[in-house]
Design a protein around this nucleic acid. Structure first.
Lengths: 140, 140
DNA sequence: AACCTTATCTGCATCAAATGCTAATTAGCA
DNA sequence: TGCTAATTAGCATTTGATGCAGATAAGGTT
């Protein structure tokens, strides 16, 4: 995702308006690697701007996703997560704490069963236990 | 997933009862490679056994999944899909028709970012266009 | 700086998938 | 055949997400 300043220009160019609510979300999302949900973003936004509507958060996230500034990912946690990192990467979900980590695949897998299917996108979700959680168990 | 006959034994052994509703679902799921949703299974079941409850379908699917007889997959269609094929495989979803195809990965991908994460499971979802849909477009 | 058009915000209603709950029923063992 | 615990059906509830409309405000124009 581009910087708040660049997004301000991009939104105006696209005929969209830049409101205080959106600026706040731009800032909250920029360099955010926590893969937040709409709800967690709303909580964070509320502490800075009380009264901001969850509906507005959803709306802005949808806009950003449509502009390709962020990607929405589904990792089985029940709710969509949003990732401002739009580079080609995948995700690892900890079964203990639920945290989502980025994974970069450097060499594509070899597969069978896709002869008659033209792939435009692939997403891998890994599940397991993250380092922090395995350390936690070890000290118990 | 095992055959309806084997499942009958397995359910009784586990202290679960084998009802007509469950037997029907066993049959509908056996060798079913359509990756149905709970709702589509309920529709199919209703045409054979009018009055069967959607709640019962969910219940039986949950039981089967817990027994490892089928796996539930999430491919971004909004609802869970159930797959009686529990072998190690992945899925390709057609963006046009929504059909889900099986994909077998014969060689694992090489990756970066999982140094401190112990992977217990990985699932790849491919998106694109299936053969039938690309043929459809070609003839238009 | 005032104005005007149009996008946006908020709050509420709605929707869909899935699960919780309970009285009536039924499987299946003794 | 009878008994007991599991199951069913149907409805209520929950949760994530979207639809809707009046009030508001962004931001280009004059």
């Amino acid at each position: 995702m581009r910087s708040p300043e660049e997004l301000t220009v991009a939104f105006r160019t696209a005929g969209l308006k830049v409101t205080p609510q959106r600026q706040l979300l731009f800032r909250l999302l920029h360099d955010n690697s926590s893969h937040p949900t709409a709800d967690s973003l709303h909580s964070a936004a509320t502490s800075v701007m009380p009264g901001i509507s969850l509906r507005t958060v959803y709306q802005t996230l949808t806009d950003l996703a449509q502009m390709g500034e962020l990607q929405s990912i589904e990792v089985g946690s029940g709710s969509l997560r949003f990732d401002p990192n739009v580079s080609d990467h995948h995700h690892a979900v900890c079964d203990d704490c639920g945290d989502v980590h980025d994974v970069y695949v450097t060499k594509a897998p070899v597969l069978r069963g896709l002869d008659d299917f033209s792939v435009s996108d692939a997403h891998i979700v890994y599940r397991g236990q993250c380092g922090a959680c395995s350390a936690l168990v070890a000290t118990k």
